[in-house]
Design a protein around this nucleic acid. Structure first.
Length: 471
RNA sequence: GGCAGGGUGGCUCAGUGGUACGGCGGAGGACUGCAAAUCCUUUAUUCGCGAGUUCGAUUCUCGCCCCUGCCUCCA
């Protein structure tokens, strides 16, 4: 049972075989830090977090690199508008980014390189490209990449240069030898952040950052390169052109791209203005809800964002938490360290069911994996009802939850989220229990109604009465 | 126009050359003093439309319709 991944380069699922046995190098295009992240960004983070977790689960030593683009036109513009130093803006946004991904329970990557700290690598790579004849200095003074010099340009995105040119909406810059040529090094205008280079004071183009940083951290040839679908062209195509030309050969071997988050069947994006930031959503929904929402659809498919969809994800989590709570209350322990299965080392890692592993090995099919999770969930509930020995099942259940990074809260805490006077609730429950003992059901039901009016739902179980907040 | 990916029950989402996974929702039942939760049963003669290949297609091939994305910055 081996891992298969869909490689954009071949447009097919391939058996995954890393360059070096037992080790994986993975680079994921992060974000340009000029604003808060939206749900679309959250998807990339969660998708590749899952991929990272699964690769580690398979026993690979994974070097996971996710960059920050912290030099860029939009950053400069935004910083100027706000009257702050670009560095101050990017620092703030990186901090906000970390708050978001931490909330979403994404494991930290091995490295999070910043473009501004890799100027030497970029300048070196541009130098090689100029030297080898793939790049030229234009009349404007910018250094440009000559797309036609690179054989195989368009291979990743399935485009050919002539189609691109005929349908091109690119504004033709007269200093370009070819409309498709793109900038490697940009001349600085007064007041802009700038670095010294053999081509004068300036800053790097967007694409060169990722080529240089990925190679710097993972070597010239590495295993996985990922990002959102929209980066396929031109960003990733250009990365390939730069890196292969400069290195004289290899680069990323498997290209993985996740689908978009849509709103009303339209792509969520900054330019359309139809986006929700992660922190906005988290004001209304628990981060695990957002994570569950992402897991419910295969990573390459489009995902339609709506409150209704999040409510469904919430309902699914409630069901899983209900089972977790029942396990805790019944005192049945899973086989290793009790019912707690947290931590990035996945203590139950080897306890996943074959069906679950098969689903994850099939290009990270999380919907299928969730189907298996719910199957085991049902089995656990059944065992809880009948009193059979289900310690093995609980172990599997907790192992899956731990790997997926959901249902990691305390079950009681999950259901008792809002601002309620816990002592008041529990005093009433105790009173109701007494009333029930003396078969005063009128009083018992009055108490239950009183609590229900405050959004508290009671559940009488074999181990006493538990409660949760509705909604 | 070029290229890519889609159209599966009320909603959502998997999947397969031999009549379709899971979640939410609906219906019935068990349990309960009544509920809730949980469990059981049930809820698509059918997988956009038409044709072809096949013993057999939702799954393969061709054509058509519709949707989305990329082709400019975009996760």
């Amino acid at each position: 049972m081996s891992l298969k991944v869909y490689n954009t380069l071949s447009r097919s699922k391939e058996v995954f075989a890393p360059l070096v046995t037992g080790r994986v190098g993975m680079y994921v295009c992060g974000v340009t830090v000029y604003d808060h992240c939206h749900v679309g960004h959250a998807r990339v983070m969660i998708v590749f977090d899952l991929i990272y977790r699964w690769l580690k689960q398979l026993g690979y030593d994974v070097n996971y690199v996710r960059n920050f683009t912290d030099v860029d036109d939009k950053i400069i513009k935004r910083a100027n508008e706000a009257g702050v130093d670009p560095k101050q803006l990017t620092d703030e946004m990186i901090e906000a980014f970390h708050r978001d991904v931490d909330a979403l329970n994404c494991l930290p990557p091995t490295h999070e390189p910043r473009a501004t700290l890799h100027m030497n690598e970029m300048i070196d790579m541009i130098g090689q490209l100029v030297e080898k004849g793939f790049a030229y200095v234009a009349d404007s003074g910018d250094v440009l990449y000559s797309v036609r010099k690179f054989d195989g340009y368009g291979q990743l995105s399935g485009k050919n240069i002539d189609d691109l040119e005929s349908g091109s909406r690119v504004e033709v810059d007269s200093s370009k030898h070819d409309p498709l040529d793109f900038v490697l090094w940009k001349q600085a205008k007064p007041g802009e952040p700038a670095w010294d280079s053999p081509w004068g004071s300036g800053r790097p183009g967007w694409h060169i950052e990722c080529s240089a940083m990925s190679c710097a951290h993972l070597g010239e040839t590495f295993d996985i390169h990922g990002g959102g679908m929209d980066l396929k062209f031109p960003h990733h195509e250009n990365e390939i052109a730069q890196a292969r030309a400069a290195n004289g050969g290899g680069f990323a071997r498997y290209w993985l791209h996740n689908g978009f988050v849509n709103i009303n069947e339209e792509k969520m994006s900054k330019s359309l203005g139809n986006f929700f930031t992660i922190c906005e959503v988290l004001k209304k929904y628990h981060p695990e809800v957002l994570r569950m929402f992402m897991l419910g659809t295969h990573y390459r498919s489009p995902l339609d964002f709506s409150d209704q969809a999040l409510d469904v994800a919430k309902a699914s989590l409630d069901r899983l938490y209900e089972t977790k709570r029942r396990c805790e209350e019944s005192g049945v322990r899973s086989q290793e360290s009790g019912v707690k299965g947290q931590g990035e080392d996945h203590p139950h890692a080897s306890r996943l069911t074959p069906h679950f592993s098969q689903a994850m090995n099939d290009d990270f099919n999380t919907p299928e994996a969730l189907a298996e999770l719910f199957h085991v969930c049902k089995e656990v509930n059944r065992g809880l009802d009948t009193g059979e020995d289900i310690s093995e099942l609980i172990t599997q259940f907790m192992a899956m939850l731990s790997l997926l990074g959901i249902v990691q809260q305390d079950a009681a805490g999950w259901f008792h989220g809002g601002n309620v006077d816990v002592e008041w609730v529990e005093a009433l429950i105790a009173e109701r229990t007494e009333a029930k003992k003396s078969r005063d059901f009128v009083r018992a039901d009055t108490i239950r109604d009183e609590l229900a009016a405050r959004g508290i739902v009671l559940e009488d179980g074999a181990h006493g009465t538990s409660w949760k907040q509705a909604g």
